[in-house]
Structure formats: C-alpha cells, structure tokens
Design a protein around this nucleic acid. Sequence first.
DNA 1: AATCCGGGGCG
DNA 2: CGCCCAGGATT
Length: 367
Amino acid sequence: MPVECREKIVDERAPSPIAAALLDHYDTHARTLAWRVPPQQRKAGVLPDPYRVWLSEVMLQQTTVAAVTGFFNAFTSRWPTVEALAAAPAEDVLAAWAGLGYYARARNLIACARAVALDHAGRFPDTEAGLRLLPGIGDYTAASVAAIAFNRPAAVVDANVERVTARLFAIETPLPGARPQIRQKVAHMLPPDRPGDYAQAMMDLGATVCTPRNPSCLLCPVAEFCEARVCGIAESLPVKPPKKARPQRTGTAYWIELDGQVLLVQREGKGMLGGMRALPDDGWSARRNGNAIEPVAGQWTQVGAAVAHVFTHFSLTLSLALYRGPQIDKVAIENLSGACWWPVERIEEAGLPTLFAKAARIAIQHR
DNA sequence: AATCCGGGGCG
DNA sequence: CGCCCAGGATT
C-alpha cells in the first residue's frame, strides 16, 4: 500500500483537534442540568438513565432549558421510571404536560413509554436504529439518546450544533439545505471514545458561547479553528430561510359556570392543542376566524379584555363570553363533545394549555 | 420539500 | 416587537 494512502487513512482517524478542545472545555464548564449525572460520576464513566435522557430530549424539542427544567423535575418525581409513566392514565400525563406546548409530543410520549414497557421489557433500545422506530423519536432524538445514554457514536445535530458547525466551517448554504454537509462535518469530528460528551459539549457551546446573537468568540475554546470568525461572519451564520407572515385570527371562548363548576371540553385527538382539556370555543383555527356562535342559547356577557396569544403560524385574539343564565340543565349541556364539569377552585389542576389558562384567569376575575 | 404544531425568554 | 429554541409527523 502506498505511503500516501496509508497516511491519509491514519490522518482521517486522527482525533479532531476541535473535538479535543470542545471536550476539554466541557470537562470544566459543563452546565449542571437536572437530567445530567453529576460531574464526578460522569468523569467516572457513569452513564445517565436512558429514561431520563429520553424524557429530557423530548421535552427539549424546540423548547428551552429554562422552560423544561420544572416540567422535567415534576415528571420524574411523579413517574420515576418508564414503567410508571406507561401505567399512568393518559389524561394525567397530558394535564402534566399542559403549558409546555407542542402537545403531540405528550401523546407520543405516552405511546413511546407504553411501547418500551410492553414491547421492550422496560428497556430502551440501545441503538440509534432501534430508538428511531419508537413514536416521537426522530433522527435527532434517536441520535442523542444513543450517544448520551449509551455512548454510541451517533451524530447529534440540533439547532445548537447546526449553528456551531455552520460557523466553524463557514457554511453559507441556507438551512435546511446545509444539513447534509453539517451532519458530515459533525460525524467526521466525532471522538469514538466520548460520543455522548461530544454531543453535549457542542450543545453547551451553542447555548452559552456560540449564541445566535452576540457570540462570545473571546471565550470560545474553538475560536482558533473557526472559519466564520476569521471572515467576520460568525453572527450571520447559519443562514436561515425567510419567515412567512403570521395571519391574525379572532375567536371566542365561552365560560359556563354552574354551582361552582365550569364546563370544560376535551379537544379532538389531533391538530391544535389535540387531546387537551379546554374551554368550549367557536371553532377558530389557523385557517379561519371563529364563527362567534354561542354553544347554548341564553344571556352572555362579553368580557372586554381579550386574550392575545401568538402561535407558531398565526396570532389569535381570543374574546371571552360569560354565560349569565337562565339556569340551564347540566345534563343537556353535556351533549357537547367531550364535556365535563370542573370545580372552579381547582382550575389550575385541569391541565389547560396556556391560551385557555389565560382565558380562565380573566373569566374568574370578571365573573 | 413544505407545512403544521406552543410557549416563553431575550435583545 | 421579532427571533430563537436539545424537532417530529404528516402531506
């Protein structure tokens, strides 16, 4: 075999100096997070509980660490194992998820926990491919659980890693087109002995140093390797596609209270806020305004203060109407699909998504 | 490849 | 106020 060829092979297997610098920095600057094992144990080679890694990763999908931490602690206190979560009533899990958003995650979380408990004897698959087959686990989450919980050499690419990598290699191709190239760079740098720490080191760097705006290049452990910094274009990377305008919609929610109880409904299993408890409303959606038709005949009071709420792809101005009588038949109104009466004093426990929690708060002030 | 799906925090 | 975030499922 020619020497050049052998050298090339050896060169490709040489540890990436970037990964080495990242890991050194991680060893002294890793964030302390609720789902991580303490530094002492981590340095001793102790891996985190796959259940906790999976739960944290699902919660962290498009969601910040600050928003997740409280929910993670509440979930793991209440359901310490995947078997416990699998055995929980779905409505309890959905209610516990209320306020965290992207409720399909909660529905998939339940399905995944039950699949692991029933089909895998309570053990998460320890490979990327095995994990990828479970509900709610896509490319990113499969790679991250495989790397972090099982130390598998998986390329973990989230928004942090995309940003760090796009800057390190001055990749000016707009996302998502740049993803294959980014993924290849991440895989190429991957240190075979510490895939989990490497993934978390990249994410920590993106979260604390290589931030979207005002990156702290002076504090960056890999600044000397960063092509974007040399070019002075770090802050402009990665290039993202232009955002679409958000339509403005209007709708109405209805507060029907009788004997200290308020009428709630359960929303359809799919779509907006799917499966969640809610106030009855007039059918507003991202596509159209609500029809403002009251669910039952009677006297209604319009509350002046409406709820302004911003979703990912539209903004909603939600009006609120309070039922003022005459006294209605409790049984009759339960014909509304998924209707149930809920004690007003315990409204916090109903598991209302934030939009309806806001509306309920205003209704209680005005009743 | 596009679109749909929450909510909060930050500059 | 706009931008961002440990993305996945569906079409």
